[in-house]
Amino acid sequence: MPNLVCQPKIRGMPGLLVVDNLAHTYPDGTKALRGVSLTLTRGEIVSVIGLSGAGKSTLLRCINGLVHPTGGSVEFDGQAVGWDAGSLRYLRRKIAMIFQHFNLIGNLSVLSNVLMGRLSYQSCWMQPLYSFSKRDREIAVTALDRVGLLNEWDKRASELSGGQQQRVGVARALAQEPRLLLADEPVSSLDPLTADTVLGHFVKIVRQEGLAALINLHAVELARKYSDRILGVREGRCVWQGPPDDLTTPVLKRIYGEEYDG
């Protein structure tokens, strides 16, 4: 099956992220991605939907090099991404990630967790000491304030509720001062009401800061509500993309299979 869509660059606006024909085969032979192309412009919020196992996580993880793509290329901010440690470190400074299970360090304080977003800026001799520059600490405090958790700064991260933990995850990502946010099912482990609140808050911040975001979502409703554009992934390929209003039942059947009802 050929790639159906390859978003052209929007007039005059260079793509912030240009993914071309990205492919990944896991060492065990699983072809998780079979050539996905997409373009993200500044300030754009794009959701990726699809069945579990469709390759959504692999797509996101290939973009920041947590998984090395076995084919295709990624261009970020006009520069082709190399997969050596040096360029990955720079890339990951500018592309922050938010995880389904938050991936906070439970034993550390909330503020320490947010400071992890400053690791790539931390000077060499401060690294063993768990110490951060005044500027780094100010940025972390601002980020924590941004998600409304400043009062909880010295609690242990594991003491917070799920929704609060994900907000710490968002603050950690913001502390990186990124250009792009990758979110892998950021609200899937939260109850529906909290999920909507947390995602809404996240999207609001992304808009206010003028950032771009690529969000894997489990719930079609949330994708419709919060994104500028939606990408449908099926069996490692991008089978559809368009604005939320075009996401009709036939389209959903194409993404999720004929059994889809909703």
């Binding site: 922050a96 992890m116 690791l119």
Partner: peptide, 23 residues
């Protein structure tokens, strides 16, 4: 999970051990 988060934050090998594993 946290180890991966430290990697995704741009942590180097030492930071991954020191901040992701040690705590």
């Amino acid at each position: 999970g946290p180890v991966e988060a430290i990697q995704a934050c741009g942590g180097n090998r030492f930071q991954v051990i020191w901040y992701g594993v040690l705590p």
